[in-house]
């Protein structure tokens, strides 16, 4: 059953995943070329001063990219399921609702994770090439809130799409929007690092919200 469910999700996602992967790769490449250009056209000391003393984050261009990626993947997977309430086809399969939904989320999250890994590696290697390893290391906690925002964007997108009751849908949209906005509210290196363990708790909560929306979808029917 699992291979079939993964096949279904892959058929929906493959084009959007390829496009998102290429877009993310392109933006990361642009960041690499921008830093290289700055190093060549300006004094290297000035670039170091900006990056290390003023805490200018030189890879700001990807700030909102994980969020956009998460939302696109959620829409690619679940808009076709909601058109004509096609999710009923999956809900009738001889598998539990939880397992079926888990398989869908697993596919989306795995592909999202692949894109995140690509971005993180390119940014890390770019920084390591021009700056001390401490600057490269700091990119991980700096980017983590953005990557988490993408994760929340994905899970929130799915939750909102599955919800059938409009007032509740708007409420959920508001909650996820506030949480995502919080993740973008600071600047500088590792500004959210102390809160990250607590922020990680958002993930299982958002994960569970998808299952609750799916239950409500199934019980509402017509």
């Amino acid at each position: 059953m699992l291979p079939s469910l993964l096949l279904k999700e892959w058929l929906k996602l493959k084009r959007y995943f390829a496009a998102a992967l290429l877009l993310n790769f392109g933006i990361c490449l642009k960041i690499f070329f921008d830093i290289r250009q700055q190093m060549h056209s300006e004094h290297a000391e000035m670039v170091w001063y900006q990056a290390i003393h003023i805490h200018t984050v030189l890879y700001q261009d990807i700030r909102y990219l994980p969020l956009i990626t998460g939302l696109v993947l959620a829409a690619a997977q679940f808009v076709p399921e909601m058109l004509g309430r096609r999710l009923r086809l999956s809900l009738h399969l001889p598998a539990s609702r939880g397992f079926m939904l888990f398989s869908c989320l697993l596919s989306g999250l795995l592909l999202y994770l692949l894109i995140c890994v690509q971005d993180t590696i390119i940014i890390y290697l770019t920084l390591q090439n021009y700056f001390p390893v401490e600057v490269a290391n700091s990119s991980l906690p700096t980017m983590l809130p953005w990557l988490l925002a993408g994760l929340l964007g994905y899970l929130g997108g799915v939750t909102v799409l599955l919800e059938t009751h409009w007032p509740r849908r708007i409420f959920l949209l508001l909650i996820f929007s506030v949480l995502i906005t919080m993740l973008f509210s600071g600047n500088g290196y590792g500004w959210f690092t102390p809160a990250i363990p607590y922020l990680l708790l958002l993930f299982p909560m958002a994960f569970c919200s998808v299952f609750e929306s799916a239950r409500r979808f199934q019980e509402r029917g017509v």
Binding site: S4, L7, K8, L11, P80, R85, R86, L89
Partner: peptide, 15 residues
């Protein structure tokens, strides 16, 4: 109702 993003062979393989 059917999965419109699938073709005939993919539908068979899925089910």
């Amino acid at each position: 109702l059917a999965y419109e993003f699938m073709n005939i062979a993919q539908t068979e393989k899925f089910y």
